[in-house]
Amino acid sequence: MSHRSEVVATPLPGVFVTLTDSARSFPRHWHGNFGLGVVDRGAQRSASGRGAVEAFAGQCLTHNPGEVHDGTPIGDTARRWRMFHIEPAAMARLFGVSSSADLEWHAPVMDDQALRSALDRAFDASTAAGSTRQTADSSDSVLLEEALLLAVGRASPLARSPQAVRPDGENLTIVVERLADDLKQAPTLDELAALVGTSRYTLVRQFGRRHGLPPMAWLLQLRLQRARERIAAGWGLADTAQSCGFSDQSHLTRLFTRQFGYTPGSWRRATAGHSVARASAF
């Protein structure tokens, strides 16, 4: 009977990722943390805190701390699923509350394409950030936190803390100005939320609706744009990386190539003798 499962730490304290590909049946058990993930292949039937449920490829899964569940594959195909396992203290931090005691997933299985997309982005961000046993760039860690925050918020609208004040357009402009003010020293989501008097989740969601990306993902785009301009102006790659908030030249090269499809060196050669206009941050 095929079975393969691995667990990796993320740079976020108390947040782990598991990848399981298994034809096994699991007996009744529980976890001490919150789980949120997605079925990539196959299907399974399981007991849950809401009764017996079935989950199929493309659907999302949750479990609460102490919630007894099991799992049996449906059909002859091994099922494959990915999960974020979030310790209670880490969940409380994501929601901006002092305790996770009042937080709860309200559906063990969700058929929600927007949630699936949010989880895919969070898993991609986790892969990019690496683990605590590796050298993880701080910007990658922040992007992971932001992506996970959006996925968690999408998955549990009924578990959210009391409705936070929604920042208006003027306040969101203040956030943009703060992000653009110092590329080398990015503010935290906590600082930005305090700046406009709202929760981190509300800030990330409202900023994304207005500007197309959540705050830290938007900042990364601005950093890459400023790096592109400075390379075209003749700056060296190491100086460009340092001035634009990247940890080193390698970090800049990796993200620049992923974003634009060509290396910083190729861009420098292509723009030799040409001017590139500075793009507005707003």
Rank of each mutant, 00 (worst) to 15 (best):
A92Q: 11
A78I: 02
G49E: 15
D112I: 02
H63G: 11
E146W: 03
W81R: 10
T271Q: 14
R133Q: 04
P215S: 06
N33L: 03
P13T: 05
N64E: 13
H29G: 03
D111K: 15
S199C: 05
S138A: 08
G265F: 02
P88A: 12
L61K: 14
H274K: 14
E177K: 10
H274P: 01
L144H: 05
A277C: 04
I86Y: 13
L143V: 03
A270H: 09
L222W: 11
L94R: 12
T127Y: 02
T263D: 01
M1C: 08
W30I: 02
S161H: 14
M216K: 10
S161K: 15
S126N: 09
R79G: 06
M216G: 00
R205L: 09
L224Q: 07
D181N: 13
L195M: 04
G58A: 10
R230K: 13
G71Y: 09
A227K: 06
S250F: 06
D111T: 15
S25A: 14
L183R: 08
V204L: 05
S2N: 13
A272M: 05
R278A: 12
H69K: 12
R79Q: 12
H106V: 07
L103F: 15
S5L: 11
R154D: 02
A186L: 13
A128E: 08
R41G: 02
M91V: 08
Q134R: 10
R116P: 00
A129T: 07
G32I: 00
W267A: 11
A129E: 06
R80E: 11
R93P: 05
L36Q: 03
L255S: 07
E170P: 01
E54M: 14
V53R: 13
K184E: 09
S138D: 07
A155C: 13
N33W: 13
F123M: 04
E146P: 00
A151M: 03
D248L: 07
S138G: 02
G197P: 08
N64Q: 15
L189M: 09
W218N: 10
A151L: 03
V38N: 01
V68R: 11
A129V: 04
R121N: 04
V176T: 07
A90R: 14
V176F: 02
A279C: 11
L237C: 01
H31P: 09
L150A: 12
F207E: 07
G71I: 05
S117I: 01
T263I: 00
L158H: 15
E6H: 07
L19Y: 12
D239A: 07
